[in-house]
């Protein structure tokens, strides 16, 4: 998933707000997991490591499923801005219904 950074994504320090990076990663994770399971699912917990601040450009979040269980799915995501790795995410999703 991609997000072109605009001024409304910045925090008071002039860099992309951590919630923006998180939201993009969570979307890529949820989409990837829904695509793999075909069932509705929701984030149970997420850990994010912010690696570099971003002031502009296009953020790209790429999700990968680590393990798909019958109730829980573990997945990770990398967020890049160009060649720069800006965040690493490890998450657990719960399959609903």
């Amino acid at each position: 998933m991609r997000l072109a950074v605009r001024e409304e994504h910045l925090n008071a320090a002039g860099v992309v707000h951590g919630g923006v990076t998180f939201t993009l990663a969570d979307s890529a994770l949820g989409y990837g997991i829904f695509k793999a399971t075909g069932r509705p699912c929701t984030t149970a917990e997420t850990k994010i490591n912010y690696l570099k601040p971003v002031a502009g450009g296009v953020l790209i979040a790429r999700s990968r499923i680590v393990r798909k269980g019958s109730r829980l799915v573990v997945a990770r995501a990398e967020v890049h801005c160009g060649d720069v790795h800006v965040a690493e995410v490890l998450s657990t999703f719960v399959i609903l219904g």
Partner: peptide, 9 residues
């Protein structure tokens, strides 16, 4: 088989 995934600081 992968049995665990870890992310640390």
């Amino acid at each position: 088989k992968q049995v665990a995934e870890v992310l640390t600081t």
